[in-house]
Design a protein around this nucleic acid. Structure first.
Length: 484
RNA sequence: GGCCCCGUGGUCAAGAGGCCUAAGACAUCGCCCGUUCACGGCGGUAACUCGGGUUCGAAUCCCGACGGGGUCACCA
């Protein structure tokens, strides 16, 4: 039988990384098995409707290369794929359940329920609906219905025995029935609850594997009761562990690092993000770590899904990102990094190409680039203590000598190219009998004001240009003479 | 609190009774690459939550404790 998986987000306007990973696994499994990946939008909560939120879902998924075979915008044989467009199909199914005695009308108001719930909690008990309305006779129910009283339809859950099912990730699970609540299927406004709509839709859409977050682990028995009451085949369940920020907390929006868009804005590559995300909770069984989407499809095995929650390690993601950046074709890197250069270097007329060559192996995340290159636009304030470096055998006194020696050499260079600067200065150093480091370290500090820079003295001098290099050299020389 | 799930280094993880004096990766530390930093190379530190069983033998099976998470809505 053809495998059919689905990703069913409720559009909130943002794509949470946990959700993205759920989508990813659904996609990978469907493709691996030669099946179909379906996108369904679950928007039964009209109060939470957000303008443009579905587009965020579409764009993110497409951006990452997870193309769905059926969905709201591409259609399919099992539509419509937006739950609000399907609102009329649920009630008849609920009524069918009432006929079978698997569900019943309930006229208890929300206020009454809240009251009873509060009372139960005050007594330290767990509140459970007491099946009050199940005792109503057919006539009483009809009378209330005729009177136009608001009602909900509830599942009639068994109170004894136990419900069991097998989960692909967690194995054999069993739950005592007396902990099951008579959950609401149809709300007073006539709309189905999420849980109910889910079951109906999954069945109607022929979903064979339900892959979702493990927060549904303990409500799954109730889903199964529904399938059984209808006489429908129960799908394979694949509950996915939570992606955590640390041992105690999930990734949350409060930390500003839970959404796909957060990462893209910071300068993470979607390929790196997907690659890393796939590995939180799953592994290929060997030492491979780098995967394209196609390679993930090939390697994906539902049996290798982990059953312990995984902590999202920002450091590892950053490492992946840096690796992807290094392996990126240079021209692509240049194109991507340019806007980040522009933030602090616009109007400076620098050789971005050369700068990019120097920066590519040093870029971990693009938003760190501006801070690394802004010294090229403006000489930072620095302490002359920077001239101290024992390995280079230099200190402020040595630096004064070195700068004095190198300044006229630099001034004499006509062709300000990196090679010429390099060869000329190296020759002068050799002639002077000084150590390379004793000249080059002070020179780099003098024109950059930084302890570490992308590239050494020659590269920086070249990028700065002759005038600016000499200008900075003079300023630093003065500074040194006044303080040393 | 009831019910459910989970428990290998700081993190992701391999491991499905002897191959474990427990892989690999990130992070961290050290050395090398004598113009910094980065890249790269080499090496180090670091783990089976605890206690009982079962077994000739347990990280692997069972029980308990402890720890963490989830769930108990007319939200999704």
């Amino acid at each position: 039988m053809e495998v059919r998986t689905r990703f069913a987000p409720s559009p909130t306007g943002f794509m949470h990384l946990g959700g993205l990973r759920t989508a990813l696994y659904n996609y990978l499994y469907a493709k691996k098995m030669g099946g179909k990946f379906i996108l369904r939008i679950e928007d039964t909560d009209q109060e939470r409707f957000v303008e443009g939120a579905t587009e965020v879902v579409y764009n993110t998924l497409r951006d990452c290369g997870m193309v769905w075979d059926e969905g709201p915008d591409v259609g399919g044989d099992y539509g419509p794929y937006v739950q609000s467009d399907r609102k009329d199909i649920y009630l008849p199914y609920a009524r069918q359940l009432v006929e079978k005695g698997a569900a019943y009308y309930c006229f208890c108001t929300k206020e009454e329920l809240d009251e009873r719930r509060a009372a139960a909690e005050a007594r330290g008990e767990v509140f459970k609906y007491d099946k009050h309305c199940l005792n109503l006779t057919k006539e009483e129910v009809q009378a209330k219905l005729d009177a136009g009283l608001p009602y909900v339809i509830r599942l009639n859950a068994p109170t004894s025995g136990e419900t069991t099912y097998d989960d692909v990730v967690f194995g054999h699970l069993s739950f005592p029935n007396d902990t099951l609540d008579d959950m609401v299927l149809i709300k007073a406004d006539g709309m189905p609850t999420y849980n109910f709509a889910n079951v109906i839709d999954d069945h109607l859409m022929g979903i064979t594997h339900v892959m979702r977050g493990m927060e549904y682990l303990s409500s799954t028995p109730k889903y199964n009761l529904l399938y059984e009451a209808f006489g429908w085949e129960i799908p394979q369940y694949v509950h996915l562990t939570t992606v955590m920020r640390d041992a105690q907390h999930k990734l949350s929006k409060r930390d500003g690092d839970a959404y796909y868009s957060d990462f893209i804005e910071k300068g993470y590559l979607k390929e790196a993000l997907i690659n890393y995300l796939a590995l939180v909770g799953w592994n290929p069984g060997d030492d491979r770590e780098f995967f394209t989407m196609d390679e993930l499809v090939q390697a994906f095995d539902i049996k290798r899904l982990n059953n312990a929650p995984g902590i999202f390690d920002m450091d590892k993601l950053t490492w992946f990102n840096a690796e992807y950046i290094r392996k990126m074709p240079f021209d692509e890197y240049l194109k991507m990094v340019t806007p980040w250069f522009e933030q602090v270097l616009s109007g400076k007329n620098l050789d971005y190409r050369r700068l990019a060559e120097l920066m590519q192996s040093r870029t971990e995340v693009f938003n760190r680039v501006p801070d690394m290159v802004k010294f090229l636009a403006e000489m930072p304030e620095y302490d002359i203590g920077l001239y101290n470096n024992k390995k280079m055998k230099t200190n402020p006194e040595v630096a004064v000598e070195s700068l004095r020696m190198v300044k006229p050499v630099l001034e004499g260079i006509e062709d300000w190219s990196e090679n010429v600067i390099h060869d000329t200065v190296m020759a002068a150093i050799a002639e002077s009998g000084k150590k390379n480091g004793a000249v080059l370290w002070p020179l780099r500090i003098a024109i950059s004001g930084l302890n570490s820079t992308p590239g050494g003295a020659f590269e920086i001098a070249y990028l700065l240009g002759k005038d600016e290099t000499l200008r900075r050299l003079d300023v630093s020389y003065e500074k040194l003479c006044n303080n040393a």
